[in-house]
């Protein structure tokens, strides 16, 4: 057990526990705060994988922007008492069936991952992480990059029009 392994186990356990919190808390504000912790844990996993740029983007976009957006939406659409906002499905059948299907999925997927071998490459990752990504993004993958930019623009305009309502001419 090296230090890296121990830190992976700690971060992974933290991430899984807070993700469980997201689906088990009965108060949706608690769920949202637990979601922020999950995002931070996932960012820690990225840092562990030497993906510093993705980790920083994760903290900025997920733990910063998306969680604030979700908390705003929660406060805008709160209709009952706050500690009853995130109850599980009242029909026990749905919850049990959902739990069963997901357990099955996770166990089969996990077992198939565990017992298969992957072609681990011995190559080294480039030293200049961010510069390398920038070269890829504005070089070989410039079309997906531009499409993503247009998609973001369209989504933001669409969200504003949806929430505010367009004026009829």
């Amino acid at each position: 057990m090296t230090l890296k392994d121990i830190s992976f186990l700690l971060i992974a356990g933290f991430t899984i526990v807070s993700a469980l919190g997201v689906v088990t808390f009965k108060n949706i504000v608690h769920s949202a705060l637990s979601l922020v912790l999950t995002f931070l844990g996932v960012a820690g996993i990225y840092f562990q994988l030497n993906a510093g740029f993705v980790g920083v983007v994760q903290i900025l976009v997920y733990a910063g922007a998306i969680s604030v957006l979700i908390i705003f939406a929660i406060m805008l659409v709160m209709d009952t008492e706050v500690n009853k906002t995130n109850l599980p499905n009242p029909s026990l059948g749905t919850s049990l069936l959902g739990g069963y299907i997901i357990l099955l999925l996770t166990v089969t997927l996990g077992a198939s991952i565990w017992f298969s071998s992957f072609p681990i490459s011995a190559q080294l990752a480039p030293k200049d992480d961010v510069g390398f990504l920038a070269n890829l993004m504005l070089g070989k993958y410039v079309v997906p990059f531009e499409i993503a930019a247009v998609l973001l623009l369209v989504a933001v305009v669409g969200a504003i029009i949806l929430a505010k309502g367009a004026e009829d001419k």
């Binding site: 899984i16 469980l20 689906v23 996993i45 979700i70 939406a73």
Partner: peptide, 25 residues
């Protein structure tokens, strides 16, 4: 496997939750 477990938890939330914001989370 960590990704697999997280995916399972998220999928459970999608199936078993009733609040639309919780499903989005």
């Amino acid at each position: 496997i960590l990704g697999c477990i997280l995916f399972g938890i998220g999928a459970y939330g999608v199936i078993a939750k009733r609040n639309a914001v919780a499903v989005l989370m």
